[in-house]
Design a protein around this nucleic acid. Structure first.
Lengths: 362, 362
DNA sequence: TGATCATGCAGAAACGTGCCTGCCAACGCG
DNA sequence: CGCGTTGGCAGGCACGTTTCTGCATGATCA
């Protein structure tokens, strides 16, 4: 009874709790909670009064307490693959940045926030953050993090179709097979006789699917495969591999590069060997960067539409979190977009004067 | 008494609580907590036993409960400026990506995780996540988010020196003034007679400091300022502004561009006007992108060292969170680095054959 | 007029930890 | 033998919410 008016012994001066609001407003804790959360049955007068008092005291509900009580934190993990001690690799740079940007937007629009977490992390970081679900980018075959998450009953949505029997809740991916075939046909239409590939040595599904699609296409049209593979996480190795590809005796007259920097690397290598693009060498690379609109010459790129992927992944995840019987399928395939520029057209409309920058993207 | 063996009525099957561990190990909750956290005075046998049981049950402590109890969440906010409804702008792309990458690494190394939050957000997202502190990028003059955070007693460290009397805990920044003066001197040394500036219309400190440094330099050497300003968040406006700058009657013979895409934009504009780089036009731009090593010609860039900034910001913030009487100053100035390439050298070593890619960065 | 019911609110039990307090046994020592 | 001391553990409160339950009060109705 004597404690009724004591000003909360342990309370820091800066933070007002729900009790302080209740006391100041002359109501109970329940009433404050109901008034602020729009629940219960209260007359508008009480609701307004409580809101005013809360505002005056600068009351902010404790996220930790709310999370503990409700079981929902409003946090979504974004798992990025790591090479060495740095999170996310160089080659996925623009892709990842765009994808993360879209995912952040989509999450915020639905009241969630994104937490960046590395795939290969010590347990203490993972267990220190309360997640409602997780987005994983390109999970490996038997990803232990994914297994652990689903064991805890958390929904997991992956960017990139899961390899093996990885039990993800849903996934989003491009149709890499169709994309590669489309590019190879495009180059063949432009007059390519021997198409080379610049690919990676890692075992992720993107690299794997793209490479096998290339090999199948070669077999179908009866061309000997001409490709160089390099560790895609090493920025310098790409330049070396591009050089090697153009130094081969069976030099290709067209090249598709799977990774973002391949375009500039191949352009530089072509200059070293005196090859004109597109006259002597047709060029396409997979990139989200806008610099290829202004290179000399502009380079045809394949966009994987990372913004659409980031948005879709987050929507699927939040649907799963909130138990929405999603009308989206649990497997979503996002179409790619081939942005055709001078580097892959034998007869470009104009060779010296490039047209004013076009407003691409969406 | 009869409840002693009941398997926790409300417990979901997938999650074991500390009570379950205590019951399975035949000890009390306190003993489990102490054993797992290395506190209290327990014989090693008990400690090992508890750890084994916890491992067997797959016990993961509830982050929410721990946060509520300890008052520390292990989460750091990363506030990004927003233009429109998308977080972080195009122009800061590579800079932000690098900086965020380094910040993520530094935070994880000390057991913290990063939460991406937009500066202009509805309150509900901010109050739904328990933060131990926040990193803000380029806060505006009277940033309401920063004020609110410091009012709650949370440490705030800013990337970019705070404008006005913004009460941040610490800040990290480059010496933009010295950087701009260094570039202008570098261009003048290379033979530039009239140096132009491509700048922005926004009021952040980076744009402001750089522009005033340019104007002061012009006044000192007696050159009329020649500059174009454009809204830096619009990727197309940069190309237009670059074109305008080279179309002026008092066309500059050297240009410094403050933003990342300015290099390619200026190269494209120079080609349109038949200007050779560096013979007719010297070029420098501020960028973290590696594409400028392989453009034709390679472009001299100013690096703001975002990785060092991201690391420093997080270190300062965590020091403040953990109450370390930091031996770092609360204001840290990171040196910039001018990466000199062909575009700013009148007599380049070789004009047609570019040297093999150098392993820059670090 | 007494029974029924909607309305407006308060009490109190969780949520799962961390940690302060305290009990019991064993031990050393004068 | 009595007493302080230390090791080994258990009880229980508190963190700040949400929410279930329930008690009044006035209005409605047979």
């Amino acid at each position: 009874m004597s404690r009724a008016e004591t000003p909360r012994r342990g309370s820091r001066p800066g933070r007002a709790g729900i009790r302080d609001v209740a006391a100041a407003a002359g109501v109970s804790i329940t009433t404050v909670s109901d008034a602020l959360n729009g629940k219960g049955r209260l007359p508008d007068a009480t609701r307004r009064h409580v809101r005013e008092v809360a505002e005056r005291l600068g009351y902010r509900p404790s996220a930790a307490a709310r999370t503990l009580r409700t079981g929902k934190s409003g946090l979504i993990g974004l798992t990025v693959t790591t090479y060495g001690d740095e999170p996310f690799t160089f080659t996925e740079f623009a892709y990842f940045a765009e994808m993360a940007r879209a995912a952040t937007s989509a999450a915020l629009a639905r009241g969630y926030a994104l937490v960046i977490l590395p795939a290969t992390s010590r347990h203490d970081v993972w267990s220190n953050v309360a997640l409602d679900g997780t987005v994983v980018i390109d999970p490996s075959d038997q990803d232990p993090v994914v297994s652990e998450l689903v064991r805890q009953g958390l929904p997991v949505v992956s960017d990139g179709r899961p390899a093996g029997a990885l039990p993800v809740t849903a996934w989003v991916d491009n149709d890499h097979d169709a994309a590669v075939l489309g590019i190879l046909d495009h180059l063949a239409d432009a007059g390519a006789r021997r198409i080379g590939l610049l690919t990676g040595t890692s075992t992720d599904t993107y690299t794997h699917l793209s490479t096998t699609a290339y090999l199948r296409w070669c077999e179908r049209v009866g061309q000997d495969p001409v490709y160089e593979a390099y560790p895609a996480h090493d920025p310098c190795a790409g330049a070396v591999a591009a050089d090697r590809l153009l130094a081969r005796p069976d030099r290709p007259d067209a090249v598709y590069g799977l990774f973002d920097p391949n375009g500039t690397d191949l352009l530089a290598a072509a200059r070293r060997y005196g090859l004109r693009v597109p006259e002597d060498l047709l060029l396409v690379c997979c990139s989200e960067s806008t610099v290829y609109a202004n290179t000399e010459p502009p380079v045809t790129t394949l966009s994987l539409k990372p913004r659409r992927i980031g948005t879709a992944v987050v929507q699927l995840l939040i649907d799963a979190i909130e138990g929405v019987d999603s009308d989206h399928p649990v497997e979503q395939v996002i179409p790619t977009e081939l942005i055709v520029r001078t580097s892959s057209q034998r007869r470009p409309p104009r060779t010296t004067v490039s047209p004013p920058r076009s407003p691409e993207g969406a």
